[in-house]
Design a protein around this nucleic acid. Structure first.
Lengths: 202, 202, 202, 202
DNA sequence: GATGAATGAGCGTTCATTCAT
DNA sequence: CATGAATGAACGCTCATTCAT
């Protein structure tokens, strides 16, 4: 089995353990055993337990980012928003373990927390650009200073919380979740823009 | 020094270590040393490390809840919302460690995670009741089935995210954060209610 | 409550804990609590945990010795043997805890082991004198050198083992146990005397 | 060094510490140090301190049982008895530590006590069968109900006590001990059978 | 290249014992 | 005199990490 493939396999197993047991309770022994490799292999591939965790977060975060960006080329803003939100919940649905590791098990160690924070920052950044394009004129005028960034973080946090809630209420269909979240985003945007400046364009 | 007082002191110290190092990296030895007591005292007072952690979460969560409820008697809904949001950021400002422990270090162990989840649930529940009172007619008609609960969770998540962002950007004044968050809440509410039913009353 | 009386009470409680939990698992905290005294009292009265244990062994051992000697004045050797054996099983029956502590929980620490060994030695010594009086002529001629002592230890060991077995089979009446043990003693004595010298007198 | 061999080495060391210090006072740190292995090895091999203790008891008990059974094929009952008794004292002589652990340090914990009790039960059982074969007719008629079992326990206890006494009096030659013990056994058997039924066959 | 075997370091916990009151 | 409160000192155990093969 080529190295690249084996790495993916190991990451799958490791992610499951991290999600189910938490960072500390997940033992390297167990991960190695379940992945069918020896422990020295784990260390040869990922340097350390933290390295393994970071690699998993990296991979999962990349996947999420790509998903969100894949819906980027769409024309209509409205469609775009809906599509993205939908894509977000698709990701959560398909990567429950990954989601848990990324957004509820995050604070295992300093570098891990930083990497997760960075990922959030990138998502928030993309969101901010989207927000700022959606208001007329210079964003700071429309939303207040740093308003775009603040709003972006509020929206990201709302999404995380909705996703976590959804994981505990799987009976709610994805479309409903998408609808709620899109409304929240649209409403927040409208409220902020209404207060601070001229109405939204899109 | 009376026991009650010393317990508070220990909780302060423990909270700092938990916030800075995380649950696992925080060592009982160190907590005892910094609090100026012996380790057996820690165990006499709090039973176990988990017990100490839970006690800290309990105390911090109670404080937060009381703060939010203290702003309850206000007359105007609008004032109420603003006052509560403000109180929330006051709490975050004054209890940085407590906030970190409650909302970013949560998943240390099963009982801990449950206690944190319960606290969130209570906050979300209070929020949901507030939301449902603010729409005309039966809430499910206005917001869709379970819409109140979903919206509450979205708002709680937004708040957490804003608070965390604020901790990294202390230069932003509290009033601005309060303003943003209140807008987000109002906007979300409006958007959801607008879609699903008649307009808001308050 | 006068000190002497309270000491007896404490010894009762302590003996129960030692018998039920073993020396190490019995905690001074628990003994103090059950006896209704404070821990410093325990230490004032008995110096240390080991001191408490030794005191209990001392008391219990004295009781056993006195019981065995109380049957000493009887006339007939045969009666004497039977009476003593009976008294032994009476003691076991009435002092189950004491018996357990003395003869199955013995090796807690060096001084404890020595005290128990000494008690056994005294019982064996009394037995040896009885044995040696029961053979004609000088004992070493009749039983071989040190034969009396060896036989005494064999008999003591047999008794301990029978008592322990009986504790697990309480349905067997004491008279039966007495009969068996007396037979074993008589038979052993007869066999040894027969080999080594002239027949027994009593 | 192969694992099996190292396990034996560790058991030797552990047995010495258990015999000299008792179960509780024997520290895993010290056992590991003396055995020249690290503590995790101890746990990898034996699971826990109790596991190590049980393994030692198991090994020692097996050796004792095998020794006693090895003398089984002899023709004459008389020879057989003598040979077995001799084998017993040989074992005690060669395994002083093992003997001490098995028969004076027994009550360390529930599972340990059970394992030791089971070993004693097996020895007593073998003895009982030997006893019952040595009387004419059905054993209960000859020895009274449960008489064989009772007698077996008496004899086992006598042997333990003799062995312990011998460890404190090493100047006595083994042949003498064997002679005494064999006599005690024979005498007890004769006495019991004489009382309860027809004379012995062997 | 891959592993079975091994360990250093540290953690949570307990308990006999003793002051300060 | 009696105690509530406090502690020093260990101990069993675990885990990420690394050689020797």
């Amino acid at each position: 089995m080529p190295r690249a493939e084996r790495e993916q396999l190991i990451l799958d197993i490791a992610g499951r353990r991290f999600a189910r047991d938490g960072y500390h309770a997940a033992a390297m022994d167990e991960i190695a055993r379940q992945a069918g490799v020896s422990k020295p292999m784990l260390y040869a591939y990922f340097e350390s337990k933290e390295g393994l965790y970071l690699a998993y977060i990296e991979r999962t975060g990349q996947e999420l980012l790509e998903r969100l960006q894949r819906t980027f080329s769409e024309r209509q803003a409205e469609l775009r928003l809906h599509a993205r939100v939908n894509e977000f919940f698709c990701f959560v649905e398909e990567h429950r373990d990954g989601w848990r590791v990324l957004f509820t098990e995050a604070s295992a160690s300093r570098p891990v927390a930083e990497q997760v924070a960075e990922l959030r920052g990138r998502i928030a950044g993309a969101l901010r650009r989207m927000i700022e394009r959606s208001v007329a004129g210079p964003p700071d005028a429309a939303l207040g200073p740093a308003g775009g960034e603040v709003l972006a973080h509020a929206i990201v946090g709302a999404g995380e919380s909705l996703a976590n809630w959804w994981l505990d209420h799987p009976e709610v269909p994805r479309e409903r979740m998408t609808g709620y979240y899109a409304q929240v985003i649209r409403g927040s945007l409208a409220a902020l823009a209404a207060t601070a400046g001229p109405p939204l364009t899109a």
